[in-house]
């Protein structure tokens, strides 16, 4: 039985995440892995992990509720690889009442923490558990201002916390799916017990 991963496919950077997961599976020596799009709760069954992509967190949050995915995601037993809007959705607290977060990671998140698109940037950052710097793309990115119970901070820059881990979940304010560096994907898969 091969590994099955999913990407929440409601809105946003979905195809890049599908491609990223496929590359990462091959890279870790999993030849028979599959990556599926998740649009309804039935799609979540037997998945080891899912990605919640970047996009607009207000839109994705609305569609999660509309599609009956809120409870199934809260109760999802696999790992979650959450990027940008995905990080907002994993938090317990966010600075915007329109986003109903899943509350899976005890942290407070600020949306658009750097400002508008003209403040979007790329930079090399240090990430715990990864020895060389990681080139990260921050696009209207959120940051966590507070990480609480059981949430391990993997990376912090001047503006705040940009990478965290809790159990099998990893949340990032930037976009690993836009580049070719698979080290964070690999870290996520290792957390799921996939690969060597």
């Amino acid at each position: 039985m091969g590994v099955k991963l999913g990407v929440l496919a409601l809105q946003g950077n979905v195809s890049e995440h599908v491609r990223g997961f496929r590359r990462a599976l091959i890279d870790t020596g999993v030849a028979d892995g599959v990556v599926l799009s998740v649009r309804r709760s039935a799609d979540l069954s037997d998945l080891s992990g899912i990605a919640i992509p970047g996009g607009e967190s207000t839109t994705i949050s609305r569609l999660i509720q509309k599609n009956g995915l809120y409870e199934p995601l809260v109760n999802f037993e696999g790992g979650i690889f959450a990027t940008c809007a995905g990080m907002v959705l994993l938090a317990t607290t966010v600075d915007d009442a329109r986003v109903k977060t899943l509350g899976l990671m005890d942290m407070t998140v600020l949306r658009n923490a750097f400002g508008r698109q003209k403040e979007s940037f790329e930079a090399d950052i240090q990430i715990k558990g990864i020895d060389q710097p990681y080139h990260a793309f921050f696009i209207r990115a959120p940051v966590a201002t507070k990480a609480g119970n059981g949430v391990e901070v993997l990376s912090r820059i001047d503006a705040g916390i940009v990478a965290v881990r809790k159990g099998q979940h990893i949340a990032l304010s930037f976009h690993p799916e836009l580049g070719t560096d698979l080290r964070l994907h690999r870290m996520f898969l290792e957390g799921l017990g996939i690969g060597e």
């Binding site: 946003g12 996009g55 979007s120 790329e122 090399d124």
Partner: peptide, 20 residues
């Protein structure tokens, strides 16, 4: 060390709008 307004950031922004 920060780079702003790169091609990737511009196309990446557009990409976040997909399905919307």
């Amino acid at each position: 060390e920060l780079r702003f307004g790169t091609e990737l950031l511009k196309r990446g922004f557009a990409s976040m709008q997909k399905g919307g």
